[in-house]
């Protein structure tokens, strides 16, 4: 077997391979550990944590759509205290970088969450979910507002030296402007993309299928959009990009890396095949080996546009 270097770097964070499991699709790792050895992964991004526990939305929370699914979970999570006391000790047993995803309804809450978790050695990086309602400003999402995303990045950057990743919303006109403001305010990387806003209605009752009316679309249906957003960022901003959106196999990962992703996240796939990363890693290795690519990181942004 040839030696292929599958490792990649995101800011200060070195990952043994580009495969991260996306926030909200891996819980806090324990369910997933029944299926695979978590140590084979590049990293795990934990379910969004907020300062206080969140009950989440009423049922129905999930709707399947053509080549995708809508979810409106409502950021249900155990809250900071239980996360520290009960979830981190489990994750600490593994030799895999843990990236903590933070959700909040005010800038102060983002800052407080990151501050409280910064001393946890198990957590190697933060991923900030800006697709949350800004309660103070009338519930509009932070992620659609350039100034707010800049402010959140700046304020969180001030309280942590760990790798800081901002997870960008695709529900904007130019995602690259958001990536740019993240970089200017000290972010180490961006994740692109979060889910796309969608809905589905029952034609008999004329009611929405989701209790929340709107949900986030994920799955293979969004992959072309995610690829376009990653490429848009890569063409204009010099910041590491973590590609996410509809990845179902190793070929999708190569495609994301070619258009500019330094690493990727598996999301919806985890629901269908929680063991997928095992065969995907083999696929990545073989692709590189057959083409004499010594280091997978060389694929990042290797597109040929003319």
């Amino acid at each position: 077997m040839k030696t292929i270097d599958l490792s990649v770097k995101i800011g200060k964070l070195k990952l043994k391979n580009p495969i991260l499991l996306a926030s909200g699709t891996v819980g806090y790792g324990n369910e997933m550990s029944d299926f695979i050895d978590l140590n084979i992964l590049g990293g795990i991004i934990t379910k969004s944590i907020s300062l206080k526990p969140r009950k989440g939305n009423k049922p129905q929370r999930i709707v399947e759509t053509s080549a995708g699914m809508l979810n409106a979970i409502g950021l249900a999570n155990v809250g900071l205290e239980e996360f520290i006391n009960e979830k981190i000790p489990f994750l600490a047993k593994y030799d895999v970088p843990i990236i903590c995803n933070i959700a909040a309804s005010s800038i102060e809450e983002y800052v407080e969450c990151v501050k409280s978790l910064d001393s946890e050695n198990t957590i190697k990086a933060f991923e900030i979910n800006v697709s949350c309602p800004n309660v103070k400003e009338g519930g509009l999402q932070f992620g659609n507002n350039l100034t707010m995303v800049g402010k959140i990045t700046e304020r969180v950057r001030a309280v942590t030296d760990k790798t800081l990743i901002i997870k960008l919303s695709p529900n904007v006109s130019y995602i690259s402007e958001f990536a740019k403001i993240c970089k200017e305010n000290g972010a180490d990387a961006v994740s692109a993309i979060n889910t796309l806003v969608g809905t589905a209605f029952n034609i008999n009752t004329r009611k929405p299928k989701l209790s929340n009316i709107f949900g986030g679309l994920s799955g293979p249906a969004i992959k072309p959009i995610a690829l376009a957003k990653v490429l848009e960022i890569h063409l204009s901003v010099d910041i590491p990009i973590i590609g996410v959106g509809g990845i179902m196999n190793w070929q999708d990962i190569i495609e994301f890396m070619i258009v500019g992703a330094a690493a990727i996240q598996l999301g919806t796939l985890n629901f269908i095949d929680p063991t997928a990363s095992v065969s995907i890693l083999k696929g990545l290795y073989n692709y590189c080996s057959e083409r004499n690519i010594e280091s997978i990181s060389k694929l990042t942004g290797s597109y040929i546009l003319e």
């Binding site: 699709t25 369910e31 379910k47 049922p59 929370r61």
Partner: peptide
Amino acid sequence: ESAMACGFGICQGCPIQDANNPDHYHLICK
């Protein structure tokens, strides 16, 4: 029963109200 994505607790898609705690949902799958 409920719509669900994963069936083993990670998607959080199948809540049912806990009768003993108004702030908590059980997951139907788990």
